[in-house]
């Protein structure tokens, strides 16, 4: 290891990442099914529908287009694994959403998201960008609001 030097990060030249608020998805979920598997557990709920609001996208969650199928670890932490479809209100374009992240018993519910949109469509900018989201579940657990930020 002696030959490796510790260069500093070139942040001043390029700038640190910034988080820009893009939109929110107010999702409605079906009641959850929980199973115990040989590896751990699954906590699964289908996405019934939802609304998208915000500066960069408005539209709807396509009803019953997927859901969250988290893997439940032994310590109760959910490894999030969600996918579902959106439709933009103005152009009717389809957008695919994928979530990865963690939901902890202490309330931490954070997501790395990925979008797939038509590369020549109006929402092509969602594609090659990095997304973070924070999520908040309603008291009855039936609704979750996902707030998406682009990492620029």
């Amino acid at each position: 290891m002696q030959e490796f030097i510790l260069p500093a990060v070139d942040t001043k030249t390029l700038g640190a990442p910034k988080f820009e608020y893009a939109f929110q998805i107010h999702a409605r979920f079906e009641p959850a099914t929980q199973t115990k598997t040989t590896r751990g557990g699954r906590y699964m709920r289908g996405i019934a529908g939802g609304k998208i609001t915000g500066p960069r996208l408005t539209g709807e969650v396509y009803p019953n287009s997927g859901g969250d199928f988290s893997f439940v670890e032994r310590d109760g932490v959910h490894e999030l694994n969600a996918r579902f479809m959106l439709r933009a209100a103005d152009t009717g374009e389809w957008i695919y959403v994928e979530h990865r992240g963690y939901r902890r018993p202490d309330g931490y519910y954070r997501i790395q998201a990925q979008f797939d949109a038509d590369k020549q469509g109006k929402y092509q900018s969602l594609n090659n960008a990095m997304w973070l989201a924070s999520a908040q579940e309603s008291k009855d657990g039936a609704e979750v609001t996902f707030t998406y930020f682009e990492v620029v």
């Binding site: 500093a8 990060v9 942040t11 001043k12 640190a16 990442p17 910034k18 988080f19 930020f149």
Partner: peptide
């Protein structure tokens, strides 16, 4: 020397 600084906290807009 300025390169050694690292922004410690990032907040969304």
């Amino acid at each position: 020397d300025a390169l050694a600084d690292e922004p410690l906290l990032i907040s969304s807009n």
